[in-house]
Nucleic acid binder design. Sequence first.
DNA 1: AATGAATGAGTCTTCATTCAT
DNA 2: TATGAATGAAGACTCATTCAT
Lengths: 224, 224, 224, 224
Amino acid sequence: MNQRKDSGVAAAPVRARHAGGTGSASERRDHLVKLAAELFARKGFQATTVRQIADEAGILSGSLYHHFDSKESIVDEVLRTFLEDLIAHYRATLADAGDAGAVLMEMVRIGFHTLEPHRAAITVMQNDWNYLRSLPGDRFDYLVRAEDEVERMWVEQIKRGQASGQFRADVDPKLTYRMIRDGIWVAVRWFRPGGRLDTDALAEHYIKVLFDGLSTGDRTSQRA
Amino acid sequence: MNQRKDSGVAAAPVRARHAGGTGSASERRDHLVKLAAELFARKGFQATTVRQIADEAGILSGSLYHHFDSKESIVDEVLRTFLEDLIAHYRATLADAGDAGAVLMEMVRIGFHTLEPHRAAITVMQNDWNYLRSLPGDRFDYLVRAEDEVERMWVEQIKRGQASGQFRADVDPKLTYRMIRDGIWVAVRWFRPGGRLDTDALAEHYIKVLFDGLSTGDRTSQRA
Amino acid sequence: MNQRKDSGVAAAPVRARHAGGTGSASERRDHLVKLAAELFARKGFQATTVRQIADEAGILSGSLYHHFDSKESIVDEVLRTFLEDLIAHYRATLADAGDAGAVLMEMVRIGFHTLEPHRAAITVMQNDWNYLRSLPGDRFDYLVRAEDEVERMWVEQIKRGQASGQFRADVDPKLTYRMIRDGIWVAVRWFRPGGRLDTDALAEHYIKVLFDGLSTGDRTSQRA
Amino acid sequence: MNQRKDSGVAAAPVRARHAGGTGSASERRDHLVKLAAELFARKGFQATTVRQIADEAGILSGSLYHHFDSKESIVDEVLRTFLEDLIAHYRATLADAGDAGAVLMEMVRIGFHTLEPHRAAITVMQNDWNYLRSLPGDRFDYLVRAEDEVERMWVEQIKRGQASGQFRADVDPKLTYRMIRDGIWVAVRWFRPGGRLDTDALAEHYIKVLFDGLSTGDRTSQRA
DNA sequence: AATGAATGAGTCTTCATTCAT
DNA sequence: TATGAATGAAGACTCATTCAT
């Protein structure tokens, strides 16, 4: 009664899952996932014990296994939910077309907008990626699959912008994608909701520098 | 008996330390630190067991305790060495003055150039930062102190560039610094020595986008 | 509320019990016992979880406790039913008298004929005897009592046969009984209904060797 | 430093293994195996906890893992040692040839003679065979391989005796083998060293009945 | 310097059982 | 009767660390 396993990271509108039922069962479950995600983000997946998760939920550690069949399956759910949501948004944006520049900006915004609702998941992905991938079995292979799909989306847009003359041709698309991606996600390390800047401001600031550069003059870097 | 504990992250040119003495003892020690750093980077600090480190060195785990008094003291040495080296380079660059743009470019280059020699340390810092900081005691407080010092250096240069009109004034210095810093360090995740691009190329690529932006036209981002 | 606990292993023809009542309730119960017995036989009593039993029955593990008050009480019922049936048959045979040889042969046949209907119970008795007997309390003391009664029956017939000159006098009755008993029951390990030999054939084969020996000549074993 | 894994159940003179060294390390190990075997035999493999084994040895349960890498690897060693010893003896006997009857008697004697030194192992094999075989992986496949080899040896001799007219032709060789095998091994359930009968007496008694039958007259069983 | 045996605290996980609904 | 959430005790195993040799 407690496993959920989808074949891949799908595209469906994410929140439509626990269809039917009182909802109360899956609410409990979601609540536990959320608690766990916070702990995973704060202390790392390994450093978080199932007892801590259970304590946070006010139950005994063994009771967690009524809802999940392992600690791994909890992170699994955390990450899967995030990736499904992210990819669904990307796909929707790409479907709307628009010129490459507009699409790319929108993708940057999507990234920053996930920062708040998925802060924990993003943190876990970054800190525990290597560890999770090193686990035996193919349980977390979807992480790589999802990453690849996202990369394809970004690189495609960058190339399209270069082809149309909108983006400079002398940058490497894949490299540029990585820079952007990392630049966004790493913000999760220091971003705190309610701080000086919200994610909108962050996104616009990032777009400003990314598209137009830090310099006031033109082609500053040539001087180097 | 054989532990080293500095209070802060010093500036002295790092490699000059174990000079004197048998030499062989400290070489052995350095070798062990290097092995451990690789493992920490690959699997994470917690997921790396002292037995794995010892195996790699061809000794038994208990024997490690003749060289270090704890697993923590090993990672301590890894990170400290890196930070000392980095800060020493920054200081040297700042001492040479030059205009803000030139200094900033040089700082970017320093960052990318540490990628190869300090790949392991940088990886550990990123993945295990939260965990190490959460440990009881003040053992890893110097991480924050070092980060603060580095931030001061960068922000100062950015502000200097804005004051002189070299950098646009409508960006947030601190935020910009973080963007740059993250963009550089995160490269450690996918950068592999001997790949398509070396760290020089990475640095120049990064500088190009950072200073002049992705767009060909002017102030593209305003259109959003 | 719904438990049955007899003090000893009775002789009454077993299946006549749950007569009366709704009938359906006790049928359900018997069905559960049968499912459980299969699992106990296949995987061992301890290795079988109540969840597995419940799964097999299509209910949740907690629901089993409406029928039985513990896992032990299930195995108790499995073994008790078998022993009651076996002893009832033995008693019936002994009541019919006949010469010792004929009675012994019939007892051998009874043994082999229980193999199929009570395969699970016999398997459990053999594999989990030690464990069940080691449990605290006197719950499974009847196992020993039943075993003793059976032994008495057999040994009595062997001695009778020796006294009448039908059986050779130079064998130990008790030891011989054990040999026979073991030879029969252990067959449960490899006997599969529907295989090359049915239990009738097994019984006759066994009787042949037991009564006349493996040799063609006379008193082969003296040569050793 | 703590695993031993032979490819199969070999034939080499068994006790020649821990060659070289002070012997003290492997003596400790052997001692632990012996203690564990006793417990496994008395309470069953599953019902025996590693803590009980450790208690018996006067160490903490975790310390056992310095010597073995799992509870399974301990039984593995118990069973492997027994099977190697048994098969080595069988092979030696077969090498000496002799007529089928003599060889078979000797094999029976070998069986009974293992009862005392390998009482624990034999008990474990019988009670926990199903469970061990059901474990995932191929770790205990050698149990079946060894059983097959032993069966081949026995059946071959029985057939040889039938071909030479020494054994009656109207018994099934495989079936007869199983009866004999089980008849011997099951004795482990009630045999206690120092009791009324030693294993020599048991063997001779068994041989008597097996070769010449229980009856005084000839072909008693035909009367049935 | 290194070994190897051991510690002790802690980890994830299992499972028979209970009980309000 | 059955559910489903929870308990609580226990289990195998891990691992940083210690220490006599």
